[in-house]
Design a protein around this nucleic acid. Structure first.
Lengths: 239, 239
DNA sequence: TCTTAGACTTGGTCTAGACCAGTGCGCTCC
DNA sequence: GGAGCGCACTGGTCTAGACCAAGTCTAAGA
């Protein structure tokens, strides 16, 4: 830990990082295969992989399963206090956003949701699962619950755009308050599968609770982001 | 990626996770050694390590270099909009905080700082590096720059407590606005060393810029957190 | 009682293989 | 020109070792 200069994988890591910084590999491009990098450096494949994992943790590169290692594009900047919807937000940064609705179903309130929404157990809710991409790469998986009594028929609409704007334009529901919880996590299970990443890759878990002007919970949203795709920027007055 | 049930390391991971959840190992306690876990599961040490890395990424366990793997205590909750200082914050959650000042020096504004502080290049500044711990475990490394003209003699004070309260009580400077940038990162170099973690471990990078009531930048703070030690909770009104 | 030296344990690094499953490309056939 | 097939290549998983450096503990010595 104190002798980085003597560790082979750190040498390989810095080597690859320098080649990326030097422009030999550009964002979105594929790196040489692990076995090729191995020959170049005269080290075992495990050592090369350790170096690649480090660069992945730093967000410099990412992998497509059994396809190769690629240079990461810059992350998307996200200000939870200025949330105008994913699509317009990403577009404003000159990137190409996309949304896929993976499922939309009727459910009923369980105990946890009942508490969040302050509604009785068994109340009708909508449950929506979406995957969102930037420039063709899946960066975000979200699982949304909406109070069906506030937005009846919501899931019959096209939900591949901004949910916020559908709530606003169709149902007249505006979001007045946002509660956001964030924590680093590992992407596992359905999140890892939806984002097509190896289970265990670090990510960011973001839980949003949206309230309308009357203080009712409109939307409860659990988001899982790739760790290398998001930069959060908050500007707030201290209370 | 779609057949988790057939992968050995996921089996080992779930095994260990279940033993932790079942109370066999409690927060702060050490797990059996990798070689012992290996015998128990009948797998190679590399496979056991892969399972441990996954649990580490999930924040379930952490490691002390060459000492062993330990069960993680719960994370600290941090609301950047209600910042009252690390010490009181952690104490309010029933934990034991500690701060070590690693260095405090006079510096002069370089180009980047000049822009942030809106001060001429060469202006005097103070540069403070601190390590902060919860229950004896280092969780946060921070590098702070303070405008020396606003708080002359600041570094002669004891800085192992709350910097905010020193600025307030000694210099009458209150923080009125906070700009916070957050992004997942890998802990490397001096951060990794200060937190005594392996270089490349995922972490959270938090950059705070504090403004006083006149809009002057008082403090510029770069924090690196262990990824498993922090949960961020923001409650905001949408603008 | 406190310190110290040394043995032992632990995780950290590294090698050199093996086999598997999914990707992607080129070739063939229609 | 398009569709389908097959194979080479890629990363993913796993084994079975080796050696090292730093942490930990114990027993001897001051």
């Amino acid at each position: 830990m104190q002798h980085p200069e003597s560790l082979q994988y750190l040498g390989v890591r810095d080597d690859i990082a320098a080649r990326i910084a030097g422009g030999e590999f550009k964002p979105g491009e594929r790196l040489p295969s692990e076995r090729q990098l191995q020959i170049g450096g005269g080290v075992a494949r495990g050592t090369v992989r350790e170096a690649l994992f480090q660069l992945e943790a730093e967000g410099v590169i990412y992998r497509k399963d059994r396809s190769g290692w690629y240079v990461s594009p810059p992350p998307v900047v996200y200000d939870p206090t200025r949330w105008e919807g994913f699509m317009s937000y990403v577009e404003a940064q000159g990137r190409r956003p996309a949304t896929e609705t993976l499922s939309k179903t009727d459910i009923v309130c369980d105990g946890m949701l009942a508490e969040i929404f302050s509604r009785p157990i068994g109340s009708p809710m909508y449950w929506i699962r979406r995957r969102r991409s930037v420039d063709g790469r899946a960066v975000l998986f979200e699982s949304i619950v909406v109070d069906a009594s506030l937005a009846p028929g919501l899931i019959d609409h096209d939900l591949n755009g901004s949910l916020t704007s559908v709530l606003k334009s169709v149902y007249g529901i505006g979001v007045a308050r946002n509660k956001v919880d964030m924590r680093p996590c590992a992407l596992t299970g359905e999140e890892a599968e939806a984002l097509r990443v190896k289970s265990g890759l670090p990510g960011l878990n973001l839980v949003r609770t949206c309230y309308d002007a009357q203080g009712r919970v409109v939307e409860f949203d659990r988001e899982h982001w790739r760790h290398d795709s998001l930069k959060i920027s908050v500007d707030i007055r201290v209370r």
